[in-house]
């Protein structure tokens, strides 16, 4: 990564425009259904029951010790209404596999950014529907040569039909040689 790339990323990350308003994309991101003739990759919609044991497993894998996330000592987490840790939304983004389409000649991709807006907590016992959609792609010449920057948005809705979070993920794909640099 060049100094310029890094400076760009630093600036981008410190833009003072985090989404304060929650009136934005939540209601506008539902995928077309019914009579629309739009091809939707079935991998782009994932429905998950949030099981207490899975939440605890995730919390422990990320070093959490807070009882709100793992339950009290000695409990199995079932009696408590465990809350999902802050980054649990990452596990609900597998629909992006149907969104990201790296260039076939690119042998490497890296996850480069996330933007998340939380609307409601996710709890054990919830059923989350995660719908993924493309937010477009750009072709760039980066420090690793020709690079494709792809963005996808996942909208997470609970069993009551309320949006609990939106997750925008950015990936960059490129081709590397044995130095890790681009093959341009």
């Amino acid at each position: 990564m060049t100094d310029r790339d890094e400076a760009d990323l630093e600036r981008a990350a410190h833009i003072k425009s985090l989404p304060d308003s929650k009136s934005g994309s939540a209601s506008s991101t539902a995928l077309p259904t019914g009579g629309n003739h739009v091809d939707i990759d079935p991998r782009m919609v994932v429905i998950r029951y949030v099981e207490a044991g899975a939440l605890r497993k995730f919390a422990r894998a990320t070093g959490e010790t807070n009882p709100m996330f793992i339950g009290a000592d000695g409990s199995d987490g079932k009696a408590e209404r465990l809350m999902a840790p802050p980054t649990y939304v990452a596990t609900l983004c597998e629909g992006l596999a149907g969104v990201f389409k790296p260039h076939p000649e690119h042998n490497m991709f890296l996850h480069t950014a996330d933007t998340v807006v939380n609307y409601e907590p996710i709890y054990a016992g919830d059923t989350i529907t995660a719908k993924a959609e493309s937010r477009g792609l750009e072709h760039k010449i980066g420090s690793r040569g020709p690079t494709i920057v792809e963005r996808g948005l996942v909208t997470l809705t609970n069993q009551y039909g309320r949006t609990v979070a939106t997750v925008e993920v950015e990936m960059r794909s490129f081709s590397t040689d044995a130095t890790g640099r681009g093959n341009d």
């Binding site: 890094e6 630093e10 990350a13 070093g63 996330f69």
Partner: peptide
């Protein structure tokens, strides 16, 4: 996401979820 989970722990260890809730975030993997 794992690295960022630890960054979030830095926050929640200081401001527990009973005190503050994480509203939104934008993270860049440099």
């Amino acid at each position: 996401w794992l690295g960022f989970a630890h960054m979030c722990r830095c926050v929640t260890n200081w401001a527990a979820p009973t005190v503050a809730t994480i509203d939104s975030y934008r993270v860049r993997y440099l």
